[in-house]
């Protein structure tokens, strides 16, 4: 019985983390997989979302307000980023967008309101009426809320990529010059894609802050970027379903290591070893990722 009561929170923890990662990956996939913009700034917007929620909480504002503030800030910053990098392609764009990750981290470390290097702790989980019986039911309710938000985002993104708008994104991904020759202002559509995808990643950050209840500057790290890119590539570029499946596989398989007895010193290493092996196997069998619609080396050319 004690095993079960400790296993359920653990399972919810895994599920919640997968939901949060999924949002970041969905956002990245809209940029990289559907629009062909090799941007990694989504990690930064994830951080902006987390800090928007943490600072809102500190100022006595709620969950909805955090989403609104996060959306406004993300729209402004991603618009500036898009205008500044709109002429860049492939790896140049990746490097330029990478700088935003460090910028957000540095701002967070040096901003008093954001708690400096210690970050902001003790953020409340969103309490849903009727589920406040115990921490477990509350956690269950919050994970259900996150799942609901993910479902809405997934549905809206699905609608978007199936529309003419989505087709324009895919056209830009495949050949931006050809799109211009057909009369499209591709810079405008790339900007729109980047803003939408950044907002999706930002939502992951808001959910994260209320889920983990602690937001520190180191939450946005280079290692996480590699992890997130692995999830994206495994699931497949240009497939929303792939983003979810890739996240589940890439996050949950190394989790299984927890149940394997091994010296503590090598647990962290083993985790990365397993991730690398999964990545290699999947890409060997399916170079486009599990659900991928486009070749990885084709994107962002």
């Amino acid at each position: 019985m004690t095993e079960l009561t400790s296993f359920i929170p653990y399972l919810l923890q895994v599920l919640g983390t997968i939901i949060i990662f999924s949002l970041v990956i969905l956002g990245m996939n809209l940029s990289i997989g559907f629009t062909g913009m090799l941007t990694v700034s989504h990690i930064a917007f994830f951080g902006i979302g987390a800090y928007a929620a943490a600072i809102s909480f500190k100022l006595g504002l709620g969950f909805i307000e955090a989403i609104v503030i996060g959306t406004i800030v993300t729209t402004i910053i991603s618009y500036i980023l898009a205008r500044a990098t709109v002429k860049l392609k492939s790896d140049y764009l990746a490097v330029a967008s990478l700088t935003l990750i460090f910028m957000v981290q540095i701002v967070a470390q040096n901003w008093d309101l954001a708690g400096g290097v210690f970050g902001i702790k003790g953020i409340n989980r969103v309490k849903l009426p009727g589920f406040e019986i115990s921490p477990i039911t509350n956690q269950l309710a919050y994970v259900a809320l996150m799942l609901f938000i993910l479902a809405i985002v997934f549905f809206l993104l699905k609608k978007l990529v199936q529309s003419k708008f989505g087709l324009i994104f895919k056209g830009i991904r495949d050949d931006e010059t050809a799109m211009q020759s057909l009369g499209y202002n591709t810079e405008k559509f790339k900007t729109i894609s980047l803003i939408i995808s950044s907002i999706v990643a930002m939502l992951g950050g808001v959910l994260y802050a209320h889920f983990i209840t602690v937001v520190v500057p180191t939450l946005i790290t280079f290692n996480d970027l590699l992890l997130v890119l692995g999830m994206l590539v495994i699931g497949g570029l240009g497939s929303l379903e792939g983003s979810i499946i890739g996240t589940i596989i890439f996050y949950s398989l190394p989790e299984a290591l927890r149940f394997v007895e091994m010296p503590e010193a090598i647990i962290g290493l083993a985790r990365y070893l397993v991730l690398s092996v999964i990545l290699l196997i999947v890409l060997y069998i399916r170079p486009r990722g599990i659900f991928g619609k486009v070749d990885i080396n084709e994107s962002g050319q």
Partner: peptide
Amino acid sequence: RLFKNLSIRENLLLAYNNSADKL
């Protein structure tokens, strides 16, 4: 310069009436 991950129909649709949102 075709959109190689798209079908021919989608290639043509992208050229047809830029503002229309009809598939």
